[in-house]
Design a protein around this nucleic acid. Sequence first.
DNA 1: TGTTTATAGTGCGATATCGTACTAAATGGA
DNA 2: TCCATTTAGTACGATATCGCACTATAAACA
Lengths: 155, 155
Amino acid sequence: MPDDTLSHDLTPYFSMFVEVGIINQIGSAFLEARLPKGLLVSHFGVTSHLSRGFDGATPLELARAFQVAKTTMTHTLGGLEKHGFVELRPNPDDGRSKRVWLTPAGREFRDDAVRQLEPLFQKIAERFPPDQVSAFLPGVSEFRAVIDQLRDEEK
Amino acid sequence: MPDDTLSHDLTPYFSMFVEVGIINQIGSAFLEARLPKGLLVSHFGVTSHLSRGFDGATPLELARAFQVAKTTMTHTLGGLEKHGFVELRPNPDDGRSKRVWLTPAGREFRDDAVRQLEPLFQKIAERFPPDQVSAFLPGVSEFRAVIDQLRDEEK
DNA sequence: TGTTTATAGTGCGATATCGTACTAAATGGA
DNA sequence: TCCATTTAGTACGATATCGCACTATAAACA
């Protein structure tokens, strides 16, 4: 009997998803409390993603990156546009599509938010140093990559 | 200069929260796709929590456990009650409060959902074995505990 | 004991997110 | 080239979540 037909103890997956759910809630609350009124984690997430080498991404690419419905991304981008943080221009490669570009104001919004978080992260660092996070981060990333792949396969 | 005044590289925290956000989205989608129509991750989360030794918790305790607003928990419990999955009874120890009790139907809903997830988790196990999750899970839990504590201290 | 303050739960309005359905453009095949 | 199918984005309605305000009860305390 080959290894991969052995039954596994699946409880670690349950525990992992539970922990992740709580960390996500806490992290979102931390961030949102430090954003200007009316701006949300989703807005920060998009500007941050664009600023990290994905400027000019399409709305659909952004929706996939964050694993949200494309209608949700339309809504989020609308908010960012209203604040002047992104510009949507036609996609020259595809008439159905658009490309999202970060404005200077958008970059500033993102950088400000990062700065606002730093004191909190310093506090975390006193109790849970960053290299301890670095120790398990590759594993967590790999896990994310695997389930990301599986999700795509589920169509 | 003592260690804890040294400046740290905080990027692992950012990366961690980003990964956690995506894992949470994917995990929620996985679960929700396997729940009966009209029932959500929040409903599963509460029944699962109750069944794991917290039966009789108060709504506020549940809101804190999941880090959601107490009005959100009121809403979630309303849905569970409508489906007959929980019962809310007065809290004999506190006239302002209630206690939430899982019904047999609620326990079955939870167990069914777990069963529906098993094939998927087996698939994950083929590509990312559970003991690899177990390897970093304690670190992740500890991280969660630390930020949980910090959140409480933020008032 | 009476009064002030804090806490548990809910009603309500605002909005973020999602699923469905639609339009327009691209793609693939006859 | 024409038509069927797929894909990108959006409009719309449903609902999950949140913040604020309110009521009832408990706790603190003069």
